[in-house]
Design a protein around this nucleic acid. Structure first.
Length: 638
RNA sequence: GGGCCCAUAGCUCAGCUUGGAUAGAGUGUUGGACUUCUAAUCCAAUGGUCGAGGGAUCGAAGCCCUCUGGGCCCGCCA
């Protein structure tokens, strides 16, 4: 690569540019005897105000009893240029604007972008983070609501890995819950066949047919309700036939679910089974300690008589830990589990490879028979649990109890909440549910949900038709691969482009869009860049970085150079959306460049052409990295 | 009744954490650009009492308070 001088140029060019501006201001303030360190330097939202802007004059105006613009003039006069900053101007508004040395900045951004791996930034300093996501009850196929969980969790894990965190990804499998028991009832009591699924995938058959039917009958028949509770109790004892059946069925469903997660590129380090948590005796040990203290008590009267509770601030806030029949509640089971994740208690599990082989990275699962704590190294300094916001209240309680019992802080144990995915009125109507024009919550119990695999398959068909239309000569294998990559990207992007606290209204028709603010818009630009690079001879001559000075080139350079800033922001705030928007903004900058600036055509030894080719290559590298953070594939053709 | 979240263009959303320059995208509608590195693209026009009111501030979409509308949660289910 021409002009690549490792170590000579900063790896994070825009972060450095900001740093230069900040130090320049600090120096000026010292000269002027102004005492202020609250000011910020930032990249202006609009062009025309320089490359970096500082607000210090506004802040200093008050103490000095002077107009911001006057102070700005004084400060700007004292600011020293650097190798990245050419000049400094006080703007009439009071802002101080820094103008970059364009060739130096271009060179810096391009060389660091072309230096593989230089996009990563250090936020975590090597700290250990466990991320738990997916955690779908093993009684059904994943629907699009679950996909939001999987994608958020997976993207956060990718972002944290790229910001120097040691990340472990966990998937909690509740193989002992009521939902599994009700499904077992469908097979054991209602005559559903385990082998004849009517051509459906097993998870889909169980969730769409058996579970829905069983739920319906249980609701109508108290005897069946009692029966499902019996099954639930029987499942506690591994030796019973019902426990064996439950285990066999839930594992079979889990296998189908994992296929779906793997299809969209999610990977895990360990599956944690609730049955193992229960049978490990973790809760009993903690409970014995708790009983000695004053944080829990046995109720003798009132609605919770016979239960062990954690007293709340008011009687109605009391939370039951152990039921009157002696069985621990979900909250009780979650406390030792959370404590285990945080390494607050010894590891009671052994680990063994998951029987179903995961692509790319090995997958473990908890085991009670394998030797304990066999080097899985899962326990972490910080735990992030991805669960939808309907469980915020419960998670708040668990966080508070963890603080009380184990001294874990809010930073250690994070509930990463997101709003749910609802169905549009139109899509609900297509599924036979009239909602009077309103959106509706999905419901596994009543069968009102949109299957994730079905959506992926439809997306792939759409993408295949579109790709074939443009690439009639493309072979079947490549067509399959590319259309799958487009489908996966579309699904993932849709799940993270909005903020976590926004409800997603899923509409089947509009989810099939491949233009506008979608992942295929972004992927398409990647393919365009790859095509240019394929066609261009790479002469290896000197690049004229000063020539990249038009608005389109400069916008593109800025977009490439700010990847690290977006990555840091998204990691600190646990916000996948920040990277999604970055990828899109980067793409917008490239498309504008592409439309207006010719790359190939003139002499390819021309230093201007060399610079443009390097710019395109830098863009490709930055975009591929950003897409990697989002788990969105980057096809070279589409 | 209590708690959490949301409200910005016709629609879907950025911007709010850390107040500062003309509030931005996509979509929709209208018009335009393919003998050119892929038109899944681009350009132009259109479109905003930033839910309402009050407060602190030189300055508010952003901060504080009140209210309105909407979503979600409040089980010996998970």
């Amino acid at each position: 690569m021409p002009h690549k001088t490792p170590g000579m140029w900063p790896a994070m060019s825009y972060a450095d540019l900001l740093d230069h501006a900040s130090k320049s201001v600090a120096g000026a303030l010292r000269e002027l005897g102004i005492d202020n360190d609250d000011y910020t330097v930032e990249i202006p939202s609009k062009p025309g105000f320089g490359d970096v802007s500082c607000n210090v004059a506004f802040l200093a105006a008050k103490a000095a009893h002077r107009a911001p613009r006057e102070i700005a003039v004084d400060i700007a006069k004292e600011c020293r240029p650097t190798d990245l900053i050419e000049r400094i101007e006080a703007h009439g508004s009071g802002h101080i604007n820094f103008f970059a040395n364009v060739p130096a900045l271009n060179r810096s951004v391009i060389t660091s972008a072309l230096d593989g791996g230089s996009f990563a930034v250090d936020v975590g300093h090597g700290s250990k983070v466990a991320i738990e996501h997916t955690s779908v009850n093993p009684n059904k196929a994943l629907h699009i609501g679950h996909m939001r969980n999987v994608v958020i969790g997976d993207v956060i894990s990718r972002i944290l890995k790229s910001t120097n965190h040691r990340v472990r990804v966990l998937n909690y499998v509740d193989d002992m819950g009521l939902q599994v028991a009700e499904l077992v009832l469908g097979f054991a009591e209602l005559g559903f066949s385990e082998s004849d699924t009517g051509g459906k995938r097993f998870d889909q058959y169980c969730g769409d047919v058996v579970y829905v039917k069983a739920s319906e009958k249980i609701k109508a028949d108290p005897a069946l309700k009692a029966k499902s509770m019996e099954i639930l109790e029987a499942m506690e004892d591994q030796a019973t036939d019902l426990a064996q059946t439950a285990s066999r069925i839930s594992h079979k469903i889990l296998r189908s679910q994992l296929d779906t997660c793997w299809r969209i590129g999610a990977r895990y380090d360990c599956l944690n089974f609730e049955s193992h948590i229960v049978r490990s005796g973790m809760w009993a040990r903690i409970f014995a300690d708790l009983q000695k203290g004053s944080m829990v008590r046995l109720e003798t009267e009132g609605k919770n008589a016979g239960c062990w509770i954690v007293p709340g601030s008011a009687p109605e806030d009391d939370k039951v830990l152990v039921r009157s029949n002696g069985v621990a509640t979900y909250i009780a089971k979650d406390i030792p589990y959370a404590a285990w994740k945080l390494g607050k208690i010894p590891d009671p599990f052994g680990y063994e490879p998951c029987a179903q082989e995961q692509p790319d990275v090995p997958l473990l699962q908890t085991s009670l028979s394998a030797p304990e704590g066999a080097g899985a190294d899962l326990q972490s300094d910080r735990v992030i649990t991805v669960i939808d916001s309907r469980q915020t209240r419960l998670q708040t309680i668990i966080t508070a109890l963890l603080a009380k019992f184990f001294g874990a802080t809010k930073q250690d144990y994070v509930h990463l909440a997101y709003e749910s995915v609802t169905l549009s009125a139109e899509t609900a109507a297509q599924m036979g549910q009239q909602t009077g024009g309103k959106n509706v919550q999905m419901s596994g119990r009543s069968g009102l949900f949109v299957n994730a695999v079905a959506v992926l398959d439809m997306l792939q068909e759409r993408a295949r038709a579109e790709t074939l239309r443009r690439n009639p000569e493309m072979g079947a294998d490549e067509l399959d691969r590319v259309s799958e990559q487009i489908a996966v990207g579309a699904m993932r992007y849709e799940m993270i482009r909005q903020d976590l606290d926004k409800v997603i209204t899923f509409d089947l028709a509009s989810s099939m869009r491949l233009d506008g603010d979608t992942s295929s818009y972004i992927q398409y630009a990647h393919a365009r860049a790859v095509r240019i690079l394929q066609k261009a001879d790479r002469p290896g001559g000197g690049a004229d970085y000063a020539s990249l000075c038009g608005a389109h080139e400069r916008d593109l350079v800025r977009a490439i150079g700010t990847l690290g800033l977006s990555l840091r922001d998204s990691a600190v705030n646990l916000s996948p959306k920040v990277v999604a928007r970055y990828a899109r903004d980067l793409t917008v900058a490239f498309n504008a460049f592409y439309e207006h600036v010719r790359v190939i055509g003139s002499s390819e030894a021309d230093p201007v052409t060399v610079a443009r080719i390097e710019l395109v290559d830098s863009f490709r590298a930055a975009l591929a990295y950003a897409l990697g953070l989002l788990g969105i594939p980057a096809p070279p053709r589409m």
